Simulated assay, not measured.
Amino acid sequence: MALNTLPDIGGNAFSTLTPEKEKQIGDVLIRQTRARLPMVYDPLLDEYLNALGNRLVARSNDVKFPFKFYWVNNQEINAFASLGGNIVSHTGTLAVSESESEFASVIAHEVAHVTQRHIARFVEAQNQRSPLTIASLLGSIILATINPEAGMAAMAASQGAAQQSAINFTRSNEQEADRIGMTILAEAGFDPNAVPIFFSRLSQQSRFVNQQLAFLQTHPLSQARVSDTRLRAQQFPQRFVPDSQDFTLTKSRILARYHYSTKDALIIFERMLTEPGGNTRVNHFRTYAN
């Protein structure tokens, strides 16, 4: 990833990497991301994702800049946060989410990464290093969230000790993002139990595939982490949160246009219409959206 267009962030990382400069760097990185990945430019999907995302941001602390949410047309389960309030979700993440709370839990987790300035905090930890090394590490971390294998290769190609500390640092932030993200989720009116449910399903799914899921490469998931989120969710009042119509229709649009082939989508959705209780507005929309 070319980083020669990044603003000068100086030598003392945290004191120099102000929220304003973090936003500047984030804008450059998201432009590079949009140039590299198959972004989705769909007004209806954008409206839903940004409405959901900003609902979560409104319940967050330490918000230092406006957030913007983006879709990538990719069936893999993944989402990542960049500097400056930019968050990207794969279409596949919503496609496999069995409830709106599950999908919102992923976005809340990424919001927490941003509000806690995890990348900026890493830069602070490296403030004795040269600005060139810091810029290289920033690029490697962002690239790792987009493409784990390429990101780790970029880290390995630079100074080994610094890059390994970057990997360890980003992993150590996951627990904090889990904790804060779950609080954001609950405050926004979603079900915190969606977090361990979603994690458990991903953990089970990863046992039956040859390659690790993209989400698990950028969000390492142990059984202890699943148990920790389950225990944490029990601290919140139990609640039933029905899916919104916007979520149901957005998921239908993603399944019809970005997840299944045209032929497969028609067969699947037309079969749904004939099943008991299947003659619904959503299934009609799915067939129409295709």
Rank of each mutant, 00 (worst) to 15 (best):
V28R: 12
L29V: 00
S105V: 12
V195Y: 00
E20D: 12
M272Y: 14
R281S: 13
E187H: 12
N127Q: 08
F65M: 08
Q175H: 00
S200I: 00
V111K: 10
H113P: 00
A79F: 06
T5D: 11
S99Q: 06
V57L: 14
F67T: 03
F103Y: 15
P196S: 12
Q212E: 14
V282R: 03
D243Y: 14
T280N: 07
A81Y: 00
L202D: 05
A51Q: 10
F247W: 08
N54R: 06
N54W: 08
S101A: 04
S89W: 05
M272L: 13
Q163C: 07
A95S: 11
M272Q: 15
T93K: 02
A289V: 00
L45K: 15
G181E: 04
I267M: 06
R121G: 04
S158A: 15
W71Q: 04
I254D: 01
H284Y: 03
N50P: 14
N210I: 09
A289M: 02
K251R: 12
L202H: 04
E176H: 10
V106K: 05
G189R: 15
F215W: 09
N12T: 13
Q238L: 11
A256M: 07
T133N: 13
P148K: 04
R232D: 13
T229H: 04
S172D: 11
R253A: 15
P276G: 06
S252H: 06
G53S: 02
W71N: 10
A194F: 09
V88D: 10
Q163D: 06
A188T: 03
R271E: 11
P276T: 01
P220W: 14
A177W: 01
S165W: 07
A112R: 09
D228V: 06
I146P: 06
S101N: 10
V209N: 10
K251L: 09
N54D: 15
R232K: 07
P196C: 11
P131T: 06
T91E: 08
P220G: 14
D191M: 02
V40G: 08
Q126K: 13
Q204K: 08
Q205M: 00
G181R: 11
V111Y: 01
A51W: 09
R55F: 11
T229F: 11
H118T: 03
A154Q: 05
G139Q: 07
A233H: 10
M39F: 11
P242R: 01
S15A: 12
I77H: 05
